[in-house]
């Protein structure tokens, strides 16, 4: 039974393409700024207040790897990408319950567990579209600038970012089965992912805040480490994956038990 997966996948194509297009546009602006950035990297790194440097995790900004890992990825992927996945997942269940679509869906011989899992599985669409899109944009941007980037490191950055995006989706999904208004669930999911990203960045400032940083998903995905130092934090990605599965399990258990 994959009818729901098929239907939900179709629904996600439009917003995925739209966001990919937006990413393309922002990438153009960011890459256009790189030559100037590289020349003045030292000045930039010094001029930025440590708060902002910490937010993005600047390092080796004058190299293309440092620029992509420390500037482009944190902004486009960790912040916007994470927020998008949280937002989409937050609408998956509560929207259907609210519009009574869920009544019709559940009049079919399909379990509630299957409904949740098929809807989550439909997130393959934005995962594939956004990843493919951004890889293309980065390769194109790097080529136009006459630079080069290790394609394996770039591929690993995308691969290891998937668990991070899934955790953001898991947060949205739990909100989607708990709250009873679609707008509330989506706004809360957006806000929560943003605040978690903020906490991760700001906690660099004070070692006393280090423990709280461990609670933020972006702490377990570091594009600069992958691109600049070729450090692949597989264990961190594993932690994110397990967290995602736990969030999906929690959402499923809640959804199966509740009245709709």
């Amino acid at each position: 039974m994959t009818a729901i997966l098929r239907n939900e996948s179709g629904k996600l194509i439009r917003s995925s393409l739209l966001l990919t297009g937006l990413f393309g546009l922002i990438s153009v602006f960011l890459f256009a700024a790189f030559p100037g950035f590289a020349d003045q990297a030292e000045v930039v790194e010094e001029a930025f207040p440590p708060v902002l440097a910490g937010l993005f995790g600047f390092e080796e900004l004058h190299t293309i790897e440092g620029f992509v890992g420390g500037y482009l990825f944190p902004l486009l992927w960790i912040l916007f990408g994470g927020m998008y996945f949280a937002y989409v997942a937050a609408g998956l269940i509560v929207g259907d319950v609210r519009t009574r679509k869920m009544d019709l869906t559940l009049s079919n011989p399909v379990s509630r567990e299957s409904v949740v899992l098929q809807k989550v599985a439909a997130l393959w669409v934005p995962l594939v579209v956004l990843n493919a899109g951004l890889i293309l944009f980065v390769l194109a941007g790097v080529t136009v600038l006459g630079e080069s980037i290790d394609p394996i490191a770039l591929g690993m950055t995308h691969l290891l970012s998937v668990p991070y995006l899934l955790v953001c989706a898991g947060i949205g999904l739990v909100l989607s089965v708990v709250l009873d208004r679609e707008e509330t669930a989506q706004a809360t999911a957006l806000g929560l992912v943003f605040v978690l990203w903020l906490i991760d960045g700001l906690s660099h400032l004070d070692p006393a805040l280090e423990w709280i940083r461990d609670l933020t998903p972006s702490r377990y995905f570091d594009p600069t480490a992958i691109l600049v130092h070729e450090e692949y934090a597989l264990a961190d990605a594993g932690i994110l994956l397990v967290t995602f599965l736990a969030l999906v399990a929690v959402a499923t258990v809640i959804f199966v038990r509740r009245d709709i």
């Binding site: 239907n7 629904k11 259907d96 519009t99 009574r100 679509k101 869920m102 009544d103 019709l104 009049s107 079919n108 011989p109 399909v110």
Partner: peptide, 15 residues
């Protein structure tokens, strides 16, 4: 048993 049940809700939530 829902494969043998038809349902017409009062509010029709179609896509």
């Amino acid at each position: 048993v829902k494969s043998d049940v038809g349902y017409l809700p009062d509010t029709l939530g179609f896509e």
